[in-house]
C-alpha cells in the first residue's frame, strides 16, 4: 500500500439482476461487454480496474461518455457498490465497511464535486456548504464558520446568505468546490467539474483549482472527457474505454507512447510543446563536440524550438552537473513536434 491514498484493486461492476452469474461467466470465459449484455441482460460498467493514487497528487481519469469513468469514481466513496474487488481509501478498507463508518468517511475524508454542480436550490450557500457538517450533528455556529472559510477560499465570502440560482454557472461550481472542501477532507473526487462551463471560465477555474491544490495538497481524482484538461491538471492520467482502464501514465507518457489505437486517436491533436522534454528526444553524444547552446534535460520542447529561432545549429543537453548528455538537431525537434 505504501503511500497510496486511494487504491482500487481488480474492481468490477456489473449492473443487473444476474450480476453474480455474469461475473462468474466473465471470469471463466472472458466475455466481452456485448456478450454479457446478450447472455445475462447485464451491463458491464467497470472491468477489472486497478489503480492507485499517491497522497497529494491529481489523478485524472479520462474517457468518452459511457466509458465507465463516473461509475469508477463512485466506487471510491461507494455511492456505487462494487460487484467484486477491493477499495482502500486513506488506509481504510472501503468495500467491506459498515454503513456508519462509510457515512463518516464520506462526511470527513472525501469531498465530492459534481458535473452539474448539484447545489440544493432550497438552501443558501452557507447551508449548502455546511451540509456535510450538519448531517454529522455539528452545531450551527461552527458550521457557519466553516462555510464562511470555505466560501472565502473561493472568493465568495459575501454570498453566504444567497441562493444558488442567484449565481452564475462558474460561481456555482466554485460553491460546489467550497462544499467539497468545507470539512477539510484529505481526498477530492471531481466528476467532470468544469465540463458544463464555457471555455474561458473553465480555464480560470482550472487555474484556481491548480493554485489551491498546490498549497492544500489534497489527493484528487479528477474525471474528464477532455484530454487537454487531463494533461493540464493531472500528475497521472488513466484512460478508460468500455469500462476498462486502457493505459495509466504521466501526461508525457500518454502523449508520446500511446498504448493502442484508441489512445493514439485521442492524443493526435494534442500539442506537444509543453509536454515533450529534452531528454526524451535527444540523441546520445557519441563523441560529438558540445555546442555553445545548451538546455537542461527537463527543458520543454517549446524552449528548444525558441533556441532554433535564431540559428539552426544543434543544441546540447546538459544534466544538473553541467555535463553534456546528448544533442538535439532541428530535425529532432520538428519530428517531436509533429508526433
Amino acid at each position: 500500500m505504501s503511500d497510496a491514498q486511494i487504491e482500487c484493486r481488480d474492481l468490477w461492476k456489473i449492473y443487473g439482476n444476474r450480476s453474480d452469474e455474469a461475473m462468474k461467466a466473465v471470469l471463466a470465459e472472458g466475455l466481452s461487454k456485448d456478450e454479457v449484455r446478450d447472455r445475462f441482460g447485464c451491463v458491464l460498467g467497470v472491468r477489472d480496474a486497478s489503480f492507485s493514487v499517491k497522497k497529494g497528487e491529481i489523478f485524472c481519469i479520462m474517457g468518452l461518455s459511457g466509458s465507465g469513468k463516473s461509475t469508477l469514481v463512485r466506487h471510491v466513496n461507494r455511492l456505487i457498490e462494487p460487484t467484486s474487488g477491493q477499495i482502500h481509501v486513506a488506509g481504510q478498507r472501503v468495500d467491506t465497511m459498515g454503513e456508519d463508518e462509510l457515512r463518516q468517511l464520506r462526511a470527513e475524508t472525501i469531498g465530492m464535486v459534481f458535473q452539474h454542480m448539484a447545489l440544493w436550490p432550497h438552501r443558501t450557500l452557507g447551508e449548502n456548504v455546511g451540509f456535510g457538517l450538519e448531517v454529522r450533528g455539528v452545531d450551527l455556529e461552527t458550521r457557519r464558520e466553516a462555510a464562511i472559510k470555505a466560501l472565502e477560499a473561493m472568493d465568495l465570502g459575501g454570498w453566504i446568505d444567497h441562493y444558488p440560482d442567484q449565481l452564475s454557472g462558474g460561481m456555482q461550481q466554485r460553491v460546489g468546490l467550497a462544499r467539497a472542501l468545507a470539512a477539510d477532507p484529505e481526498i477530492l473526487l471531481m466528476d467532470e467539474p468544469f465540463s458544463a462551463l464555457d471555455p474561458l471560465i473553465r480555464r480560470q477555474l482550472q487555474d484556481q483549482f491548480l493554485n489551491l491544490s498546490a498549497h492544500m495538497h489534497k489527493t484528487t481524482l479528477f474525471i474528464t472527457h477532455d484530454l487537454d484538461e487531463a494533461i493540464r491538471m493531472g500528475d497521472h492520467i488513466a484512460i478508460m474505454n468500455d469500462g476498462e482502464i486502457v493505459q495509466i501514465g504521466t501526461p508525457e507518457e500518454i502523449v508520446t507512447s500511446p498504448k493502442d489505437d484508441y489512445v493514439a486517436e485521442f492524443v493526435k491533436g494534442i500539442s506537444r510543446v509543453a509536454l515533450v522534454r529534452a531528454e526524451s528526444i535527444m540523441e546520445p553524444m557519441n563523441g560529438r563536440e558540445a555546442t555553445e547552446k545548451t538546455v537542461r534535460v527537463n527543458a520543454e520542447l517549446g524552449e528548444i524550438i525558441d533556441l532554433f529561432m535564431e540559428d539552426q545549429s544543434p543544441v546540447t543537453v546538459v544534466n544538473p552537473d553541467q555535463a553534456s548528455v546528448g544533442q538535439i538537431t532541428i530535425k529532432d525537434a520538428l519530428t517531436a513536434l509533429r508526433g
Binding site: 457515512r103 463518516q104 469531498g111 465530492m112 448539484a118 440544493w120 448531517v135 470539512a183 473526487l189
Partner: peptide
C-alpha cells in the same frame, strides 16, 4: 434530480436525512 440525492449521500447523509433535508423540500 438524481445528482441532488447523490450529493446528499456523498456528504454522508443517511437515507432519513436525505429524505427530510433534500427530497421532501425539493
Amino acid at each position: 434530480r438524481g445528482d441532488m440525492v447523490e450529493a446528499a449521500r456523498a456528504f454522508g447523509a443517511s437515507n432519513r436525512q436525505t429524505l427530510y433535508k433534500v427530497e421532501l423540500p425539493l
